[in-house]
Design a protein around this nucleic acid. Sequence first.
DNA 1: CACTCGTGGGT
DNA 2: TACCCAAGAGT
Length: 295
Amino acid sequence: MPDAYAAIVEPVLDWYAEHARDLPWRRPDADPWAVLVSEFMLQQTPVSRVLPAYEAWLARWPTPKHLAAEEPGEAVRQWGRLGYPRRALRLHAAAVAITERHSGEVPAAYEALRALPGVGAYTAAAVASFAFRQRHAVLDTNVRRVLARAVRGEEHPPPSTTAGEWRLAESLLPAEPERAARWAAASMELGALVCTARAPRCADCPIAARCAWRLAGKPPGPPRRGQSYAGTDRQVRGLLLAVLREADGPVPQAALDAVWPDAAQRARALDGLVADGLVEPLDDGRYRLPASPPR
DNA sequence: CACTCGTGGGT
DNA sequence: TACCCAAGAGT
């Protein structure tokens, strides 16, 4: 494609300068720890629900060392109803690793970030880019959708990230690190605010004139199977963990039995929570949030 | 690679 | 109202 950079990157950067949201983790006082916390919370969770949880978390644990000194169960409790509570456990484990291996400072190197619990390719690139202003391809669901439409002419990106998507993202990366970091945030913001999954606002899009998908008449992509929830183990796990979160201390078996009628599924869900280290069984038959990290 | 893992708001 | 799906990671 001829000069995709000028056709895509520059208009999106200009658009971002006008339309960027004032999010707390983008402000100058957001240090690398704050950025890391925001990225954990934003994994599969909308911004609007993260905002209050982010503020409360950092008020309680302003540095990795503060969190590392706590029991992991306290992280799970503070996580509240953000969903996917294993993230809380991994964020706690990351704080421990940062304290032990990096003197309590969030590392700047991509590989060191990637080695932290709960930090995958996206989060490592995002923290290196947003907190340390480095040059990395930051490929989240928003960017993948923007590129799928604007460049590939398809409504949705593939189910899982492909090598081709990474190649494309890297080919568009501005040479200057600061500019690359701004592009990362800008392309995500465009996907979040304009090039949305459901009802894209093409009239407000800075690259609509060159968007391959729009120019092709917005052909609908193949149907994608939705994630079912009602009646699954995930729902039962959520109900069980909610009881433990809201209790002050250990909870008797009967309190957990009350949340779901199917005893077999209930047992399977509870076993899963124990296996994940989210719940600790006591010798007296009661259960509690974990007091010590799983080794 | 396919599957699992929470929760709640938007359409 | 019933879906759809949201700054993914780990297995």
